[in-house]
Design a protein around this nucleic acid. Structure first.
Length: 276
DNA sequence: CACTCTACCTGTGCGC
DNA sequence: TGCGCACAGGTAGAGT
């Protein structure tokens, strides 16, 4: 499931591929499944993008923002994409057929086809006037948040750490895999309450967040069996229930926190006790 | 405000 | 072999 590192990896792929559509003009728009276009009138997306030039691709948290210039060149419109759990972007030659799970595609004048594939069809695309319309509802990006920002946000929260990290209005980009990974790195139990952390623990949480995000981006994402095979980030706890902790060899456990599968080491991440 | 639950989807992997 | 079913997870929205 794409989280910040995987989404960033997709963004760099779009920019750096020899088939990169940046600077190219949209020749045609294919909406294969109307429900992936999160707009009242999906066809209006076709009308809006046809003939527009792709200027850049930005990211905030797990959201991708494609800046398109209009024919008039006086204004721009932005295509937002969220990959949710199983969405993925591919660049191919326009000659190639669509994939079974292609939900949406843009054909550029260079012959490049940008495909939005998504087996589960949870992913969405839609048009906005400016990225701030989306970003204003999100917390700071997990890759670039400063310690000052993070500690300030943490000071006004009073919640279990796992759901807090997954809350995109708190911090943008952390999903279920990296939440478990960074809590393990920080040596903090997912059920600990943010309000009960010492200053040292708060700083350790921030350091772990930044470390895990940067390492995972460098690795182009995680390497989870059959889930996201593209990257090489070696997970320490996610999906390793029953296997031994790489630090202390204790068997890792899996629990449910806020309806979400949560993996941790019972030794490295002590269970919170009353008054702690 | 913190939390819980549900809906949205479909591929996977299990038990029988 | 094949069926049924629980499960996985990001987000929005409703309910406690």
């Amino acid at each position: 499931m794409p989280e910040l590192p995987e989404v960033e990896s997709q963004r760099l792929y779009l920019l750096e591929s020899v088939l990169s559509p940046v600077g190219r003009t949209v020749q045609s728009v294919r909406i294969v499944r109307a429900s992936v276009v999160d707009m009242a009138t999906p066809d209006s997306l076709v009308t809006a993008l046809n003939g527009c030039r792709l200027e850049s691709v930005k990211r905030h948290g797990k959201y991708l923002f494609f800046r398109f210039s209009t024919q008039h060149a006086t204004s721009a419109c932005w295509l937002v994409a969220h990959l949710r759990m199983t969405g993925r972007l591919y660049l191919t030659s326009g000659q190639e057929a669509l994939h079974r799970h292609t939900r949406f595609a843009l054909l550029f004048d260079s012959g490049t086809l940008l495909r939005f594939d998504d087996p589960r069809a949870f992913g969405r695309v839609w048009l906005i006037g400016h990225p701030d319309e989306v970003i204003s509802r999100l917390g700071p990006d997990a890759l670039t948040v400063t310690q000052e920002q993070f500690l300030s946000l943490l000071a006004s929260a009073r919640r279990q750490l796992k759901p807090l990290l997954l809350d995109q209005t708190f911090i943008a980009g952390v999903g279920n895999i990296y939440a478990d990974e960074l809590l393990f790195r920080a040596g903090l139990h997912p059920l600990r309450n943010s309000a009960d952390l010492s200053l040292v623990e708060r700083e350790r949480l921030y350091g772990s967040l930044r470390q895990v995000m940067e390492e995972a981006v460098t690795c182009k994402g995680a390497n989870i069996d059959g889930v996201f095979e593209a990257g090489c980030y070696p997970v320490a706890v996610y999906g390793r229930v029953g296997q031994s902790c790489r630090v202390c060899a204790t068997p890792l456990v899996k629990l449910k926190v806020g309806q979400r599968g949560t993996h941790c080491c019972p030794t490295c991440q002590p269970v919170p006790v009353a008054g702690n």
